[in-house]
């Protein structure tokens, strides 16, 4: 299995925020979810992959080619869906499409018209008059019409209704049917798209926390719920993050086997959800600051 995106030691400093030494591979033919709280660096990372922001350090490879040198050829194979509208607002859908189409070598007008119909995109309407969902649908139609091998989506579902989210799931699984196309999307809301994600990349405070297969990820962790008397100094050390209340505690342990051995008889041991892993990791990192 080859990597469609390969990042090596990527760093970038901003005034009040920095991405630090991010190295990871995104698998070809699969859906990868990029998760993390707001401000974790998801959009910055995507912008770097899209060549909108230059890294201070590090190397980016796309489709096995050096991205900083082969950007134009690589972007011909990328479909990009931004978290904000990037199109000219006063143009109509039709005119915007006319502007975009000639730049892509594999633009297929028939496919575009198919999606225009499917998404009920009004060709004569101005971009600024489209709803958020429609804008996303338009950028999806564009991305799918130039035969993109890699779909990169930044927060595609934020602010969208559940019906469209479902439609999107359908579209995305349709897109990867041929085993060659890959999808990367970012989200701060783990409950919707993550069920079709094959891999999860978790970023927190500009650092990579993990890049794991979704299927076995939750099996590595253990969620422990028990009485507060169980927590002493050494025990606390076992946890990634703990939430204590007046009636007990909940905590996440990174090593399932070890955790189960210790807490099996004294506390409730469960398999955490992705959201719980995210929550306790962020909580834990805040506590250490």
């Amino acid at each position: 299995m080859s990597d469609v995106i390969k990042l090596q030691g990527l760093s970038k400093s901003y005034d009040r925020f920095a991405l630090r030494d991010i190295s990871l591979g995104i698998k070809e033919g699969y859906i990868t979810g990029l998760i993390g709280p707001n401000g974790a660096g998801k959009t910055s990372l995507i912008k770097m992959i899209m060549g909108m922001v230059y890294p201070d350090q590090g190397d980016i490879q796309l489709f096995g080619k050096n991205h900083l040198q082969q950007q134009a050829a690589n972007k011909d194979r990328i479909g990009y869906v931004s978290d904000e509208n990037i199109y000219y607002e006063h143009l109509t859908v039709k005119d915007m499409k006319r502007v975009i189409a000639p730049f892509y070598t594999r633009w297929d007008e028939k496919t575009y018209l198919k999606y225009q119909e499917k998404f009920k995109l009004p060709p004569g309407k101005k971009i600024k008059d489209l709803s958020k969902g429609m804008k996303i649908k338009f950028s999806l139609a564009v991305a799918l019409s130039h035969g993109a091998d890699l779909l990169i989506m930044d927060e595609p579902t934020s602010g969208l209704d559940p019906i469209f989210r479902r439609e999107l799931l359908e579209l995305l699984s349709e897109h990867i049917q041929d085993e060659k196309k890959s999808i990367v999307f970012s989200t701060h809301n783990t409950s919707d798209l993550d069920r079709i994600a094959d891999y999860i990349v978790f970023i927190n405070e500009g650092r990579l926390v993990f890049n794991e297969m979704r299927e076995t990820l939750t099996e590595k962790y253990l969620l422990v719920k028990g009485g507060r008397e169980l927590l002493d100094r050494d025990v606390r050390h076992m946890f990634i993050g703990i939430r204590e209340t007046g009636v007990g505690f909940e905590g996440l342990i990174g090593n399932r086997v070890e955790g189960e051995r210790y807490f099996k008889d004294t506390a409730i041991c469960e398999m955490p959800t992705l959201e719980e892993i995210m929550y306790f990791t962020v909580k834990g990192s805040e506590a250490h600051v």
Binding site: M50, M52, A72, Y80, N85, I86
Partner: peptide, 13 residues
Amino acid sequence: QHNNQRFLVSLPL
């Protein structure tokens, strides 16, 4: 205007 420069940079050029 807006994020239009991001659109231009996203093009395969």
